[in-house]
């Protein structure tokens, strides 16, 4: 970052080992700061390189949502981080309204970490299937081989209907999301569609 004017809502800055500036933002001022970064002359970070999240092995440390921004005009990069304490609600504002590229990136973070992005138009699981019941794979509490036994994983996988998310209903969700009743929106957000059969009783 070249300009000396501070990013609104900046808590502190650090320099990463690769020489890039990291700006830590207050979670509630993320959108404001991002808009500022994108639109202020002299900043013009018009390109969103990546959005991801980090959870540390030390569970006391907060999760970080990391945004990599770039100004194509100034050929400059900046890294923005928002810290989310693991005990509180994992939610930040979506930057989808600023960069369309954030659409799938935020969905992926949601899928892998369970971090919700407020204001995202279509926040669904993207890599795992929608009824995936084991949790959020990239969380440190998630074991490498998953929570269920292999047999149970195979059984659930085979019992998923490959056509489950192939419906007119699904196509209209994104459009109708605003009009749906709250409980339905909640169910859709959780990816509830179809029922996962009960595990066999004789283990």
């Amino acid at each position: 970052m070249t300009s000396s004017s501070p990013v609104p809502g900046a808590l502190r800055t650090e320099v990463a080992r690769d020489g890039e500036t990291i700006v830590f933002l207050a979670a509630d001022r993320l959108l404001e700061a991002m808009t500022w970064l994108k639109e202020t002359p002299g900043q013009e970070f018009d390109y969103l390189v990546d959005v991801t999240a980090v959870e540390f092995r030390d569970r006391e440390r907060p999760l970080e949502v990391v945004y990599f921004l770039r100004s194509l005009k100034r050929r400059a990069d900046i890294r923005i981080k928002v810290e989310l304490p693991a005990t509180a609600e994992l939610a930040v504002d979506s930057v989808w309204s600023l960069w369309r590229g954030a659409d799938w990136l935020e969905r992926e973070v949601f899928d892998m970490f369970g971090i919700t992005f407020r204001g995202h138009p279509d926040l669904r699981r993207i890599l795992m299937w929608e009824t995936y019941a084991e949790g959020y794979p990239l969380r440190k509490s998630f074991p490498l081989r998953g929570r269920f036994s292999r047999a149970e994983q195979v059984r659930q996988a085979l019992n998923v209907n490959p056509e489950a998310n192939y419906s007119l209903e699904e196509l209209s969700i994104a459009e109708a999301a605003g009009d749906l009743p709250d409980d339905m929106r909640e169910r859709l957000r959780r990816g509830e569609r179809g029922v996962i059969p009960e595990p066999p009783t004789a283990a």
Partner: peptide, 14 residues
């Protein structure tokens, strides 16, 4: 149960 092999076998070979 929607499986090809008994669950124990799946666990074993996995």
């Amino acid at each position: 149960k929607g499986l090809r092999l008994p669950p124990e076998t799946i666990d074993e070979i996995s």
